[in-house]
């Protein structure tokens, strides 16, 4: 049973968003990390890059798979989680603690298009 945390927003493509003021932390869900298996590399975007919702944010590689991470929101990347560069396995260990990027959102109303915890639970069941 994959873990889902209340109070986060979720995307159909299995990213989560945690909102703090105008900022969004983005990571991948427990369900996503389980499907990928042992993660060996997280490709991080560059800070100051602009990204639009639905655009490719980064890519995650496991031993046997590679998956693109789609940005759930539009905005500017203000921080990347550099810890993942050396320790990509942290995403396996705790996918909700180990966010990938922090985005300064341009349009908070985009969040309304995302799923809540209950809706996401339905999606993956």
């Amino acid at each position: 049973m994959s873990k889902i945390i209340d109070g986060l927003y979720y995307a159909n493509s299995h990213e989560w968003v945690k909102v703090e003021d105008a900022f969004a932390y983005v990571g991948i869900t427990d369900y996503a990390q389980e499907s990928l298996g042992e993660i060996v590399f997280v490709e991080l975007p560059e800070e100051d890059d602009e990204i639009s919702a639905g655009g490719e944010l980064s890519a995650i590689e496991s031993v046997k798979a590679a998956s693109d991470i789609v940005s759930p929101v539009t905005g500017t990347i203000v921080m990347v989680n550099e810890e993942l560069e050396d320790s990509p396995e942290l995403v396996n260990e705790d996918p909700y603690e180990n966010w990938i990027v922090k985005i300064e959102m341009e349009n908070k109303s985009e969040l309304e298009a995302l799923l809540n915890a209950a809706e996401y639970k339905e999606l993956i069941e």
Binding site: F41, E61, V63, A66
Partner: peptide
């Protein structure tokens, strides 16, 4: 190694 880049996966 690094096979995830390759055509049979991507």
């Amino acid at each position: 190694t690094l096979q995830a880049r390759e055509q049979h996966i991507r």
